[in-house]
């Protein structure tokens, strides 16, 4: 389990830092463009104020994006601080969706987090729970196809703590989707992670939906 956790942290960190590097690259080029424009303006006596303002706005937007990314990454880095703790499901869903966005974009899949009113929480291993949700998202992302939609929702029903739903872009949904997917290595991985947390998982559909139920018995 420790190795799996380390690999998971590595994957998420690599994805997030790649995004941060992209943000910095945009800031770098934008700052470079401002320098270019000023230097050109000094030569021809015409400073393109509108263009400069637009580029500065671009920098501000990217700084905000970078702050958001690094905040998420920092929160994620603190996830393993406790082996077991109450996990706010709204926050956990938001966090895993935010950290998975890059993976979704690479697969051209849309990924959304939903919120539920009121405080919903589960007592569990916070990092292992994020890992379980990420594996579920990845499983459905690999299956939904380009331009499909994955949505993650906390406490979808009594006794369930999270649901990951998929909606393919096309209109054809194979009837044996859930059965086929249950035989894949990806689902077996999800099942194994869920077993470690005593959380039953089930695959419903079509359209495919992975539901994680409340842990059975004593807290992990």
């Amino acid at each position: 389990m420790q190795t799996q956790k380390a690999l998971f942290m590595g994957r998420i960190t690599a994805g997030a830092t790649h995004e941060i590097k992209n943000v910095l690259a945009i800031i770098k080029e934008s700052a470079g463009l401002i320098e270019d424009l000023i230097s050109l303006g000094e030569k021809n006596g015409r400073i393109p104020v509108e263009k400069l303002t637009k580029t500065l706005t671009k920098i501000t937007d990217q700084v905000n994006r970078g702050v958001e990314l690094s905040t998420r990454l920092n929160e994620f880095a603190h996830t393993p601080d406790q082996d077991a703790a109450p996990v706010d499901l709204n926050i956990a869903v938001e966090r895993v969706v935010s950290l998975s966005q890059r993976f979704a974009r690479l697969k051209r899949v849309r990924l959304e987090a939903h919120r539920k009113d009121g405080e919903q929480s589960v007592f569990t291993d916070p990092l292992a729970f994020l890992m379980l949700m990420f594996s579920g998202i990845e499983l459905l992302m690999n299956h939904v196809g380009e331009n499909g939609l994955i949505s993650v929702e906390p406490s979808p029903a009594q006794g369930d703590i999270a649901a990951i739903s998929s909606l393919p872009a096309g209109t054809t949904i194979a009837m044996d989707d859930a059965k086929t997917l249950m035989e894949t290595e990806g689902f077996q991985r999800v099942e194994e992670l869920a077993r470690n947390l005593n959380m039953p998982v089930r695959l419903e559909g079509p359209p495919l939906r992975l539901v994680i139920a409340e842990p059975i018995g004593s807290p992990v």
């Binding site: 992209n22 690259a25 945009i26 080029e29 934008s30 470079g32 463009l33 270019d36 424009l37 050109l40 580029t55 671009k58 990217q62 974009r105």
Partner: peptide, 16 residues
């Protein structure tokens, strides 16, 4: 490059 802001800004600098 799929990062539109990066590609468009770098392209602008190369054009200059």
């Amino acid at each position: 490059d799929d990062e539109k802001e990066f590609a468009s800004t770098l392209a602008e600098r190369l054009n200059l």
